[in-house]
Amino acid sequence: MLTALDKKLLQEVADLHGEPPGAFNIRKDGKGIERRSLDGIEINPKKDQPGIDVIVAPGKEGTVHIPVILTETDLSDLVYNKIEIGEGANITLVAGCGIHNPGQGKAQHDGVHEIIVRKGARLVYTEKHFGEGEEGGKRVLNPKTVLLVEEGAYAELELVQIRGVDETFRVTEAEVMAGGRLVMYERLLTDKEQTAESDVLVKLMAEESTARIVSRSVAQGSSSQKFYPRLLAYGPGRGHVECDSIIMDQATVRSVPEIWAENSEAELVHEAAIGKIAGEQLIKLMSLGLTEEEAEEAIISGFLK
């Protein structure tokens, strides 16, 4: 039975109002509490370790929700999920983790996702992080995603963390096979003393493998962020890395994009920028009647859209 708090967390991380449509698995405080498989979308708990296997049959279309919520303090939850999208399937998968830490201790969730997008399949994957709770209690999220995009398949990852999470170390590794396409959007806002580090390695394995990594972040307060997006082409693939950060207050941001080609036909581009909100942007919005604070908020929310 979901409490009002559970429902609120589920809404924050998965836009869920009540029971999810389609197949789902809800994990709360280290245990799976509700689950529904559908014909062609099997969700099974792992036998030898915590976590689930999500197996989507070839050609299947649908939506899968696998949110995780933590509502206790002094809790460390480690989970291994395997997601396999069958050939030619078309799936939207909403993961994400919401933490409400009611005490002064640490609430931590470390999720390892292994995702395979089989030939010609399409996956749109959203992972949203949310944290709230008592002052002093720590909320920690360390997701690791290992992705294989097979020949002609398409994967789109949207990774979002806006405020509320004190520490994050995110690792994303992807291999994109011939004709496969990967698009990754990362959006992050840190505040206060929060720290966030994102380590991305995308390997373009063969001809016509393409990848686009777009990272947008806002660092406020005394928070710090580090980005290491790396794009490696073994074959004649094409890739683009874009890291763009707004820095405010006493925050620090390090951005180290790397492109690495091992084939003379590869085309790789990177861009990285760190800067404060431009005065002309604030003036424009204030000339529409917004206060300076409202203008700043509008610029940040647009930037992180």
Binding site: E280, S287, K305
Partner: peptide, 28 residues
């Protein structure tokens, strides 16, 4: 009065070199 107050009183200005906003749709 500052820019905001003057805007709210009914003064508007279309800039010569409009600022660009990453991520913000025209609609917004």
């Amino acid at each position: 009065l500052g820019i905001t107050e003057r805007a709210r009183k009914g003064i508007g200005y279309a800039f010569q070199h409009p600022a660009r906003f990453k991520g913000m749709p025209v609609k917004d």
